[in-house]
Amino acid sequence: SSGGSSILDRAVIEHNLLSASKLYNNITFEELGALLEIPAAKAEKIASQMITEGRMNGFIDQIDGIVHFETR
């Protein structure tokens, strides 16, 4: 797709992000992006959206560029 990722790509990214949230206590956007094979800024945006929508527990430290995952 030309304008970003398809629905399937997005679903795969979100699935992998949720998997990462179970493996890590926290991770930088750079590391997360590398893990998900997407730019760091996109990793931040998707993580932020999932947390806001209540689909993933955690919070974002924008100063240090880190996602902190919280286990249920």
Rank of each mutant, 00 (worst) to 15 (best):
F59T: 07
R72I: 10
M50F: 04
G3H: 12
L17H: 02
R72L: 13
S19W: 12
L18F: 05
T28G: 06
G3Y: 02
T71K: 14
A47Y: 03
I13S: 03
F29I: 08
K22S: 06
A41G: 08
I13H: 06
L17W: 02
S1K: 12
I7G: 12
F59E: 05
G58M: 03
A47S: 05
V67S: 01
G65E: 06
N57Q: 11
K22M: 10
E31F: 07
D64E: 15
E31G: 06
I51E: 01
N57H: 11
S5D: 14
N25T: 14
I27N: 00
R10V: 13
E14V: 06
R55I: 07
G33H: 03
G3P: 11
N57D: 10
L36V: 02
F29A: 02
G65Q: 09
G54H: 06
G65V: 03
E14F: 05
Q49N: 08
G4N: 11
G3N: 12
I38G: 01
A47V: 14
L36F: 05
A40C: 06
N26K: 15
K42Y: 15
A47P: 00
A11Q: 12
N26Q: 15
G33F: 02
P39I: 04
N57I: 11
G4P: 14
T28E: 02
I27E: 00
T28H: 04
Y24K: 05
M50P: 00
G58N: 01
E44Q: 14
M56I: 15
S6G: 11
K22G: 06
S1G: 13
R55L: 08
A40G: 05
I51P: 00
L18A: 06
S6N: 11
E44G: 13
I46F: 07
L35P: 00
N57W: 06
T28V: 02
S48R: 14
S19T: 14
M56Y: 02
F29D: 00
L8V: 13
A43S: 03
R10H: 11
M50Q: 00
T28K: 05
I46C: 04
M50Y: 02
R10E: 12
I63C: 09
S21R: 02
G58K: 01
K45A: 15
D64Y: 14
L32E: 00
I7T: 10
N26S: 15
I27W: 05
A47R: 00
L18R: 06
G54I: 02
I51C: 04
L23Q: 11
Q62N: 11
G58E: 01
G58S: 02
K42P: 02
D61N: 12
L36I: 03
P39K: 05
L18D: 04
L18M: 09
E53S: 08
Q62L: 14
N26E: 14
H68E: 05
G33K: 03
D64S: 15
M50V: 02
V12L: 13
S6E: 15
T52I: 12
H15T: 12
D61V: 08
S21W: 02
H68M: 05
K45E: 15
S6D: 15
S5N: 12
S2D: 13
A20K: 06
F69W: 06
K22L: 13
N26H: 15
F69N: 02
R72M: 12
L36Q: 01
E53P: 00
R72D: 12
T52H: 11
I51T: 01
I63Q: 11
I7E: 13
S1Q: 11
N57V: 12
E53Y: 01
S21K: 03
G33R: 02
D64F: 14
D61S: 10
R10D: 15
N16F: 12
N16T: 08
Q62G: 09
N25K: 15
M56G: 01
K42N: 10
V12P: 05
N25Q: 14
L8Q: 11
R72Y: 10
E70H: 10
E70D: 11
I60R: 00
D64P: 06
Q49G: 05
N57T: 11
K42M: 15
F59D: 04
R55W: 05
R55S: 05
E37Q: 15
L8T: 11
L35C: 05
Q49D: 14
F69R: 02
A20T: 08
E31I: 07
S19V: 15
S6C: 13
S48T: 10
R10I: 14
A41V: 10
R10Y: 13
I51R: 00
L18I: 12
A41W: 15
T52W: 08
F59S: 09
K45N: 08
E37G: 15
N16L: 15
D61G: 04
N26D: 07
R55D: 02
E70P: 07
V12S: 12
A41P: 06
K45F: 13
D64K: 15
V12I: 13
E53M: 06
R72Q: 13
V67T: 02
S21T: 06
L35T: 03
Q49T: 07
P39M: 04
A43R: 01
N25H: 13
S21F: 03
S19L: 15
N16C: 12
I51Q: 03
L8H: 11
G3L: 11
N16W: 12
E44F: 09
A11R: 06
T52M: 12
I63W: 07
A40D: 03
E44Y: 10
T71C: 10
G58R: 01
I46T: 04
G54K: 07
L23A: 08
M50C: 04
N57P: 09
T52R: 14
I63M: 09
I66M: 11
R55T: 06
E14P: 01
G65P: 05
K45V: 10
G58P: 00
R72N: 14
V67F: 05
T71N: 13
G65F: 05
P39R: 03
I63H: 09
A11L: 12
L35E: 02
L23V: 11
L36S: 02
I60C: 02
H15P: 04
T71H: 13
E53D: 09
G65K: 10
I27P: 02
T71A: 09
F59H: 11
E53A: 08
K45W: 10
G4A: 12
T28S: 11
V67E: 01
P39H: 06
K45H: 11
F69A: 01
E70W: 08
M56E: 01
I7Q: 14
I66S: 09
V67W: 02
R10N: 10
T28Y: 03
A41I: 09
F69G: 02
I7P: 10
V67H: 01
I51L: 07
G65A: 06
G3K: 10
V12G: 08
F69Y: 02
D64R: 15
P39D: 10
G3D: 13
N16G: 12
N25C: 11
V67G: 01
I60A: 02
F69L: 04
G58Y: 01
F69C: 03
S21V: 10
T28M: 03
M56K: 01
I51F: 08
S2G: 11
H68Q: 05
E14N: 03
D9K: 03
R72C: 12
I60E: 00
T71P: 14
I66Y: 07
I38Y: 02
V12Y: 10
N25R: 11
I13Q: 05
S19P: 02
I27L: 14
E70V: 09
I60W: 03
L17M: 14
I13G: 02
R55F: 06
K22H: 09
Q62F: 14
H68C: 07
N57R: 13
A40P: 12
A40M: 07
A43I: 13
I60F: 03
L32V: 02
L17N: 02
P39W: 03
N26W: 15
I27H: 01
E37M: 13
D9Q: 06
G54F: 02
A41Q: 10
L18K: 07
A47I: 11
S6Q: 11
R72W: 10
